[in-house]
Design a protein around this nucleic acid. Structure first.
Length: 981
DNA sequence: TCGGATCCATTTTTT
DNA sequence: ATGGATCCGA
């Protein structure tokens, strides 16, 4: 293949990234910039143009899905033969392969298995209970994992944070337990692999190139691993985007970017700036979100597409209503696009998998099928876990945890206490649980301290018999190398009478559960077919380096289960075409859809209530929003899924510019439909064809739900008495809660306002504002004393949620305790109801409201809506610092450097869309749009892309380069840093 | 004393 | 829908 065919699908920057001859290449790539494409192209280039052997290339990804995607793409371009030879997978799976092949050298038993999350948790929990350590299991687990993930990170932990002494004990015990059971947990896979490669570099002596996807998500140990993989030739290519770093909780360290530059001073840095995915308005809005992070490195996102429609921020009354609205909007979209947008083009992205409930039920009611990515995993299902535990015992009889879990699973009359006692006895006599049982039942030695009645013994023989028979069979399989993994599982299921067990255990549900078992057969069959040949995953042979052959299909299957916890939803599933996708945001990374819904955008959900890194939560929202190609909908209910007892506030990540969104879904008139068709590169049917297909009574606009929803807890807003709470039933606790209620009905929280005022947002999109003045004033007067109290007790001085203008100091700085009330009044806004809707809504919901259970604890207890952190965030809206076309710091600091070849801007595709109603989006972005500085690149000819260092982080000059890794002027950067080996 | 059943609060993100 | 704690029948 000629190089042209590799390069023709690439823009200039991508081209440079693909063909760079530098030993290390760092690609900073925003969302939708063709990251994966570039990485795969580089692999193709290395093989076809640089003459690398496929077997000498390692490609590490972060998630299973990304690995699959890469594999697929490489296969298409290099052929299956080559693709198979490339060592490609997640860090964990690659590490496992090395350990399986070479682990003996570091004293690892070749039959090690992987302890999954549940195993780890159970083990730690038991240790803590047994030793009566005064620590929380989840905390201990996280602590241990963090410790392992750190690698040789040079961060000198600020030691003042003293860790609980029990943690160390727990850690030690945990590791001992794992070792005894011959288990490695996820982190151990990496830790041990680092150990292996440090001591035996020959194992990777063949490696010519290492490529890392989603680099921003690597943690310390993965960084070490990457370096070790590459130790022979030091050729590394990484792709990443700090803005999409969402795995900090797994110890991902963005600073690995700087470490790379420090450790490999000759690194070629390239930015991919074109966004080929989203409409311009979607990008603008996403940037508004991410730019609230003042510490981030700004980078350019050049929209390739036209403006599109404004993203929507929809308010709904409650979570169930939010689900209904999504259904109705989904129907509206698919209908109004006359089949050119299908359900499969739509995704609902959630912060937590548990938020899917109300969405799922709404979709279920509407008869719309969906698939869920993330959340409950197939292998986590009870019935599957049982079978897998059996298989694990077959593979590894000494895995006490698995034995303990299955010992009584088709009920055998063995209770908790007995199991515990057995475990203790086993430990005392230095036997595994399995060996103890075996000896007790077969070996005649009735060593059991706790004697079991007759019945149990018989049943135990059953267990033992089944398992030992299966073990024999498993051995045969590995000898014959046949496809009988499925046979093995079938035999297990039959002998356990598993179907009958399911029927007995899960009356109504057993059919579904049995179907899951069938699915397990399918998955095992697929695995045997795809990976049945052990050579499939084999590492390349290296001269004079001895390998262990990994020929046990059962072991590999179990490892695959542990590492690919995400069930392959691809095939098998029924018509994918009519399914919408529900996914966690984390699981959606790297994917894209024409239409994206992000529901539940409220504080507590999107900055998750348990999250401690607000910046990461914000990036999460950014990732979610940038998945959308053409239509983006955020929505927020007034009450969380728990019902009327927890009122929620709009997420602070969008509250300061909520008015910049549309309040309801766009009208799909002809120009809109066509422009979206163009963004998606799809042909939309003619107007007539669309309208002919619309069902009767179809509502073409998004107005089935009120724009300003009513608080179902409110009294009838038309009743003047209600406003003063006198018409309220006593249960509403008017004395405590009453006066605030009038304020609470406003959906837009009071703190959102100073920003909007000062920021020059037009008020037209917030009609409520303008007309609310008098009403607000009078109401505030009546309630001000209450509010003072509320601030006092609920917020405290440090939690002022006001989004201030950058030049404004905290309001509370001026205000003494006595004078808080006026302050509240200043920032308070009341959204008057849309009365016509009010009338309708009030009537419609009256019955429901009365029937609804009254919360006994009205929601005064809600936590501060905004973390104090945010109060200090500067919002950049009014100060377009990023807009100066020339003379930006980058230019002034390093004058005279060459820009031209850094610029990644490709010859811009001429947009097929005529300017129409709007002036060309690229040239004349509205002054408010934060991204509009891109426009300057267009007019100034020389794109001045790149990174802006936040002010106030003045680093010493020598460190400078490390702190702003992707400045555009890095091609001939001085090599002041000595290379570290 | 053990095992089973019932009731209760709960549910971040992933390898 | 899952795990933990409590209670009751052998």
């Amino acid at each position: 293949m000629h190089s042209d065919s590799i390069l023709k699908s690439l823009n200039k920057a991508q081209c440079r990234a693909v063909t760079s001859n530098a030993p290390t290449v760092a690609i900073l790539a925003g969302p939708g910039s063709g990251k994966t494409h570039t990485l795969t192209s580089r692999v193709v280039w290395l093989v076809q143009q640089a003459g690398y052997q496929p077997a000498d290339i390692i490609v590490a990804t972060f998630t299973v899905k990304a690995a699959r995607e890469m594999k697929e793409r490489i296969r298409k371009r290099l052929g299956e033969e080559n693709e198979r030879k490339i060592v490609l997978g997640t860090f964990h799976s690659i590490a496992r392969r090395y350990l399986a092949t070479y682990g003996k050298r570091i004293g690892l038993d070749s039959k090690f298995a992987i302890a999954d999350d549940g195993d780890s948790r159970a083990i730690i929990q038991r240790i803590i209970k047994r030793l009566d350590l005064k620590i929380e299991p989840s905390h201990a687990k996280a602590w241990i994992s963090k410790k392992k993930s750190k690698g040789t990170t040079s961060t000198p932990k600020n030691g003042k944070q003293k860790d609980h002494p029990s943690l160390d004990i727990c850690y030690r015990e945990y590791q001992e337990h794992l070792a005894r059971a011959n288990l490695l947990d996820y982190d151990d896979l990496l830790v041990r692999c680092v150990e292996l490669l440090e001591e035996h570099p020959s194992c990777v002596s063949n490696v010519q190139a290492v490529l890392i996807d989603e680099y921003q998500d690597t943690n310390g140990i993965q960084y070490d691993l990457m370096k070790l993989f590459a130790q022979a030739r030091q050729r590394i290519t990484i792709v990443g985007d700090p803005d999409q770093s969402i795995y900090g909780w797994r110890s991902a360290e963005i600073k690995n970017l700087y470490r790379l530059l420090r450790d490999y001073p000759e690194t070629d840095e390239i930015s991919l700036e074109e966004n080929y995915r989203s409409s311009q308005l979607i990008l603008d809005m996403s940037l508004k979100v991410i730019q609230q992070d003042t510490k981030r490195y700004e980078k350019v996102l050049l929209p390739v597409h036209t403006k599109g429609t404004k993203p929507v921020l929809r308010k709904l009354r409650s979570s169930p209503v939010e689900g209904e609205w999504i259904v109705s909007e989904l129907r509206r979209v698919t209908s109004m696009f006359g089949g050119s947008l299908k359900n499969e083009d739509v995704a609902v992205l959630l912060r937590s998998a548990s938020l899917s409930r109300h969405i799922e039920s709404a979709l279920g009611k509407a008869g719309i099928s969906y698939r869920m990515i993330g959340g409950h995993k197939f292998y986590e299902r009870k019935e599957i876990k049982i079978l897998l535990d059996y298989l694990r015992v077959v593979y590894q009889p000494d895995n006490n945890d698995a034995v303990a879990r299955i010992i009584n699973v088709p009920r055998r009359g063995i209770g908790e206490a007995t199991i515990k006692s057995l475990l203790e006895e086993a430990e005392k006599s230095k036997l595994s649980l399995w060996a103890l049982l075996w000896r007790h039942c077969r070996g005649g030695r009735q060593a059991t301290t706790k004697i079991r009645p007759i019945m149990e013994q018989k049943l135990n023989t059953e267990l033992l018999k089944i398992i030992s028979a299966l073990r024999k069979k498993a051995e045969q399989i590995s000898e014959m190398g046949s496809f009988s993994l499925v046979d093995l599982i079938e035999q297990l299921v039959n002998q356990l009478n598993f179907q009958k067990y399911l029927e007995a255990e899960y009356e109504e549900e057993h059919e579904q559960r049995w179907a899951n078992v069938q699915e397990l057969f399918n998955l095992a069959g697929d695995f045997a077919r795809d990976f049945g040949n052990p050579e499939e995953e084999e590492l390349p042979e290296i001269d004079e380096v001895e390998q262990a052959k990994e020929d046990d299909i059962l072991g590999r299957f179990l490892a695959n289960v542990a590492l690919a916890s995400d069930a392959q939803s691809d095939d098998k599933q029924q018509d994918k075409t009519c399914q919408i996708t529900i996914s966690t945001i984390h699981a959606a990374k790297g994917l894209e859809w024409p239409v994206v819904f992000v529901p539940s955008v409220y504080g507590g959900s999107i900055p998750h209530s348990r999250a401690d890194d607000m910046d990461e939560e914000r990036r999460l929202l950014y990732v979610a929003m940038t998945r959308a190609k053409a239509l983006l909908y955020l929505s927020c209910p007034m009450y969380g899924p728990q019902g009327l007892s927890n009122k929620v506030d709009l997420s602070p990540f969008v509250s300061s510019f909520a008015a910049a969104f549309d309040q309801k879904g766009p009208s799909f008139d002809r120009p809109v439909v066509e422009s979206i068709g163009r963004i998606l590169g799809r042909v939309v049917p003619s107007e007539k064809a669309i309208f002919d297909k619309l069902p009767p009574l179809f509502c073409p606009e998004d107005d089935k739900f009120p724009i300003e929803p009513f608080d179902p807890k409110e009294a009838d807003p038309l009743d003047p008495d209600a406003e003063t709470q006198s018409a309220r039933p006593p249960k509403k606790q008017k004395t405590r809660y009453g006066p605030s209620a009038s304020g609470e009905r406003q959906w837009k929280p009071e703190y959102a306002t100073t920003m909007e005022q000062s920021d020059g947002f037009t008020m037209s999109s917030m009609p409520a504002f303008v007309t609310a003045g008098a009403l607000a004033a009078s109401k505030v007067k009546a309630t001000s004393s209450f509010n003072a109290e509320k601030i006092d007790s609920k917020r405290g001085p440090k939690t002022d949620p006001t989004n201030r203008r950058p030049d404004q100091r905290s309001l509370l700085g001026y205000i003494t305790t006595e004078s808080k009330a006026p302050a509240t009044a200043m920032s308070r806004r009341i959204q008057p109801a849309d009365y016509s809707l009010a009338r309708y809504e009030a009537a419609a919901s009256r019955a429901a409201r009365l029937a609804a259970p009254q919360p006994n604890n009205v929601c005064n207890e809600r936590k501060p809506a905004i973390d104090p952190e945010f109060a200090r965030h500067k919002i950049r809206g009014s100060k377009p610092i990023s807009r100066s076309p020339i003379g930006r710091p980058a230019t002034s600091e390093l004058p005279g450097r060459e820009y031209a070849c850094f610029s990644s801007s490709p010859p811009r595709q001429e947009s097929p869309e005529p300017p129409k109603d709007e002036p060309s989006a690229t040239v004349a972005a509205p002054p408010k749009a934060c991204t509009s500085f891109h426009s300057t690149t267009f007019t100034a000819m020389k794109p001045v892309g790149g990174v802006r260092r936040p002010v106030g982080l003045g680093p010493p000059p020598s460190m400078d380069r490390l702190r702003k890794p992707f400045k555009p002027l890095t091609i001939n950067r001085p090599q002041s840093q000595p290379r570290k080996p």
